[in-house]
Amino acid sequence: MSETAHTGATGATGRAGTGAGAVVLRGVATVAVIALVWEGVVVAAGIKPYYLPRLSVILSAIAALPQAYLAGFVRTLSETLLGYAAGALVGVMNGVLFYRSRWLRETVFPLFVISQTIPVIAFGAVVVLWFGNTILAKALIAFYLTFFPVTVNTLTGLEAVDKRQVDLLRSFGATRKQLLFQLQLPSALPQIFVALRLACTLSLLGAIAGEWFGDTTGLGVLLLQAMYNEQFVALWAAILMAGLLGTSFYGVVAWAEHKTVFWRSEL
């Protein structure tokens, strides 16, 4: 019976340790445990490198060529961040625009929805054809993947604002700008952050896949080269770097959410 009582609580335990130190400590502990289990299982079960190389082998492969992996990491990171930042900004502005204008919401918004069912990566080929193998082309793909969820969630968040609060502020003579920045956007923040977290992975996906259309640096390129040469250790090294990038990016956004939206942190 006490076990069952736990089920409902486990979802909350992730948020229970509020101190940043405790969160970091738990993260480090988790990583250490996963690393130990990985190394131990591969050695103990005698798994072939074809399926899963030992973690230590992968790490030493990265350590042997630090510049190549660092360059790829930095390149992919800048593509992702550029597209993500622009996408987040445009997404929030779009959301406000759609909220303000009913006409836009009814005519342009459905087009946005349709545009998101386009398999972006197919479009990626065209973007790379247009802009060449520049950092801009990948950032644009990342941007395209980011701005839509942010737009939708900004709109939902703004629409969920309590009408009575709006009326109250208005009765005190608040301007539209004040309403937006003092009440509506802060109230929508939790929703916006949900989209921002989702967009982390999406923008990284866009950047990596964008590199496949013939770039020379980046994590996507490292992945591709390792695949063509059937180098499993190098492949895992690139996957690990992509994971590191994805996790830290997500972690930073989640941390920012924790700091900004301290009053509500569910989901």
Partner: peptide, 18 residues
């Protein structure tokens, strides 16, 4: 959660080889 934060396309080359 850790596996999920690796963008799924990063696994694509590995899955193709397998």
């Amino acid at each position: 959660t850790a596996l999920n934060s690796v963008p799924v396309v990063a696994y694509a080359p590995l899955i193709l080889l397998w």
